[in-house]
Amino acid sequence: MINIEYYLVLSAAIFCIGVYGVLARRNAILILMSIELMLQAVNINLIAFSTYLIPKGELEEHLGFIFAIFVITIAAAEVGLALGIILRLYRNRASVNVDEVNLMKW
């Protein structure tokens, strides 16, 4: 059986890739995808913990899965809203480059 450590390392790696993407990307859509990576890393963590660490038959047995489902649902709502705003941004200035979103500073 695969040890839980592998899942935790995988999750940490995906989370870091997501953070790197958020910091390095300039396209709003790619930033959104990177945030999605961070959320999926959290889901891997939640499900690994739930499967390996919670004893069977306890009240909390499926809590990690339920948490993950909530995360997925809210992430979907977030993406819907974000795409609407990015669309509006594109109409306003014909670009989704976040470096150009700089009307207000300091």
């Binding site: 958020v22 945030i35 974000a82 941004l89 207000m104």
Partner: peptide, 15 residues
């Protein structure tokens, strides 16, 4: 433009 920019920044940072 300002309102959309503010909302964009808020959304990304909040996410």
């Amino acid at each position: 433009s300002r309102s959309i920019e503010a909302s964009m920044k808020f959304l990304i940072l909040s996410a």
